[in-house]
Simulated scan of single mutants.
Amino acid sequence: MPARSLLAAAAMAATVLASISAFASPNDLTIVTRDQSLQSAMQSAYVQPFTAVTGVPVQQENWAGGIDTLRSRVKATDDPWDLVLVDADELSAGCGEGLFEKLDWSAIGGKDHYAPQAVSDCGLGGVIVTIVLAWDKDKLPIAATWSDFWDVAKYPGKRGLRKGVRGNLEIALMADGVAPGDVYKTLSTTDGQDRAFRKLDQLKPYIQWWSTESEAAHILASGDVLMTSAPSGPIAVMARQEHKSFGLQFAASLYELQSWVIMKGSPSLRAAQQFLYFTGMPAVETRLLQQSGDAGLAKGLNDALPPDLAATSPGNPANLGTGLKLDVGFWHDNLAKLQQRFDAWQGH
């Protein structure tokens, strides 16, 4: 995004926000996100320019997720949370329980300003998080697929997977020939679950497990693995910043939406609305994409991106259309049982 466009967008935001600045809360605005790398990117892409325009101080915190945490935080009188980035399961449960404010869309740009999947009663889509197949193109000059990922005879080397069941069963089934659109229908049966674990059995001796985004990027950059599942953002950013030749396969990727919610009774409601309005501008979301690799959901975000950035944007329709949306309902119902089976499988 050219600096001139960003400055013009910031100036427009300043004009609009100035008209409501008199109503801004005197309290600091506290925003809460899930991981350190996204927090750092938001600090420079969102927080610093927002505070420069509005004068509202912003505090950032991290959390590990979970509806129980949200239930306890909404009752907290000290160190209140204002804006929290939640997953789809937390959004549905928390909205139903009255833990979040119902959004006043007229105060944050209007529903038509965002992609349809970003809009709900209590949530505004903040980022699309996509798990892709990533590999070192210097060592493997092909357009790798999950089938290639399993083919250790043809492409020898370690493989990286996230340490956990969610996502890995879907990947295993797609590697075994199940079309993305049929994955959850297959996985909802005992035979389908057995099939996924049998497929993982084939790869088990070659797997190096990762737990965090930074780990996934590290094991690929260090050469510990030839290929890995990984969040697309850190891989894309590392490739740009460190001039690495990494491939990202968005076909048969797994993606999910994380949404902003305003906690019920937030003392900084007006400032939270200002923040959502400001950061929902395509020019501002472009800054986050450049710095974290994570895509927002404002309409027009992908329209003016340079080709290299568009190619790795999780929100690019060409990338999003070939992926599989993570079924949070399935995992809400089955995570405990399947995680227990996965832990037992991994331990043997």
Rank of each mutant, 00 (worst) to 15 (best):
A10V: 09
A14S: 15
A18S: 12
S19W: 08
A22P: 08
A24Y: 06
T30I: 06
Q36S: 15
S37W: 08
S40P: 04
A41H: 12
Q43H: 15
Y46G: 02
Q48E: 05
T51Q: 02
V58A: 02
A64L: 15
L70W: 09
L70S: 13
R71I: 12
D87R: 04
D89Y: 09
E97Q: 15
E97W: 06
G98C: 12
G125H: 02
V127G: 00
T130W: 01
I131K: 09
A134R: 02
K137N: 03
P141Q: 10
A144G: 01
S147L: 12
Y155W: 14
G157H: 13
G157R: 11
R159Q: 01
R159D: 00
G164C: 11
R166Q: 12
A172P: 04
D176Y: 05
G177Y: 11
T186A: 15
R198H: 05
Q202M: 10
Y206R: 12
T212E: 12
D224W: 04
D224P: 05
V225C: 06
S229A: 13
A252V: 04
L254Y: 03
E256I: 07
V261C: 03
V261P: 00
V261E: 01
I262N: 02
K264D: 04
P267Q: 07
R270S: 09
T279R: 00
M281N: 13
P282L: 06
V284K: 01
E285Y: 06
L288T: 00
A298N: 07
K299G: 10
N302I: 07
D303M: 09
D303T: 09
S313G: 05
N316W: 00
T322H: 04
G329R: 14
D333L: 08
L338R: 04
Q339M: 08
F342P: 02
A344G: 07
Q346A: 14
